[in-house]
Every structure is written in C-alpha cells, then in structure tokens.
C-alpha cells in the first residue's frame, strides 16, 4: 500500500514544459557524445614521448624538425562554438553552415514507448514520456519517470 501511495504523491508532481524541453535537449545532446566513461589511462603517468614510432628514430630523413602534435593543438585551438560564431561573420549570407540544416518535417511526429520501443498511444502525466501499456508504464515509473529530477 505504501508503495502505491508513494506513487500517488509522485504523480501530483508534474514537470512543466521547460523542464521537459530541457530533458529532451539533454537526450539529443547525449547522442553526440564520444565516450560515456572515463579515460582508462587517465591515472597513468605517461612520458610525453609516448607514443613514438620506431622508424622515425632510425632515419632522420626530414631536414627540418617536425612540429609536435601539441604545437598544432595550441596553434589552431578553437572550439566548435567559436567556429560557428566566426562563420556567421565570415559567411553571413546564406547559403552557409547554418542555413544548410534541413527544416522540420511536414509529416506528423510518431510516438514510441519509452520502455519497449513499440508504437505508443499514451503519455505519462508527470514527465510527458510515451508508453504503450500498463506494464510499460509501471517499468517507466519505477525506473525513469522522475528519477533524475530533484
């Protein structure tokens, strides 16, 4: 009984539109991430010389010394956001990077159950996620619904 009541108090808490949008944006941003775990070698103290190629030591054919990777990192250091901003002044008139992005589709959005991925007809009232059956709703409430919001 206590469990059910606990759920009912949860259910009264409803995420507002801004919070839902924030969640959705975070989910989309996560799709761009390269890694979800820490660098496994982060705790290793590595000499700056590693990695090096055996060949390059044997025959110094190149007359001038080649510049290190680190040099180029510092030389061309710019983030993606900086580059986009810079482009807006370099190529202000479309067509440019920003204008090439396709607009939203004119076809209606489709909805899928956040638990099992099958087409869904229902919306979770507190968080706005989709679900397809009572069973999936239960899983959703137990695992994701408002778990990650304070």
């Amino acid at each position: 009984m206590a469990g059910v009541r606990g759920r009912e108090t949860d259910r009264r808490k409803v995420l507002d539109d801004a919070a839902r949008k924030r969640r959705a944006r975070k989910a989309v941003e996560a799709l761009e991430q390269d890694n979800f775990h820490e660098d496994p070698h982060a705790d290793l103290v590595m000499s700056k010389k590693v990695p090096k190629f055996a060949e390059s030591n044997e025959k110094p054919t190149r007359k001038k010394k080649s510049k290190s990777a680190e040099y180029y990192k510092l030389r061309f250091r710019k983030t993606f956001a900086q580059l986009v901003e810079e482009d807006a002044s370099f190529r202000p008139e479309p067509p440019n990077y920003m204008s090439a992005q396709v607009p939203p589709s004119k076809f209606p959005e489709r909805h899928f159950c956040a638990v099992c991925g099958f087409p869904s007809n229902y919306t979770c009232i507190p968080c706005g996620a989709r679900y397809c059956s009572v069973r999936c709703l239960g899983t959703h409430l137990d695992t994701r619904c408002l778990k990650w919001t304070a």
Binding site: E32, D34, N35, H37, E38, D39, P40, H41, P51, S68, A69, E70, Y72, K73, R75, F76, R77, K78, T79, F80, L83
Partner: peptide
C-alpha cells in the same frame, strides 16, 4: 571498453593534436 579520441567533432576538424598524430 574502448575509449575514443576523435579529431572530429560534429563533422569538423577540431582536435588538431589528435589529427596530427
């Protein structure tokens, strides 16, 4: 559990030290 270090971000060459290597 491979950890990736990529020169490209969102399709653009951003990490030059990685690319140079």
């Amino acid at each position: 559990g491979l950890f990736y270090i990529l020169p490209f971000q969102r399709g653009f060459l951003i990490n030059w030290d990685t690319q140079k290597t």
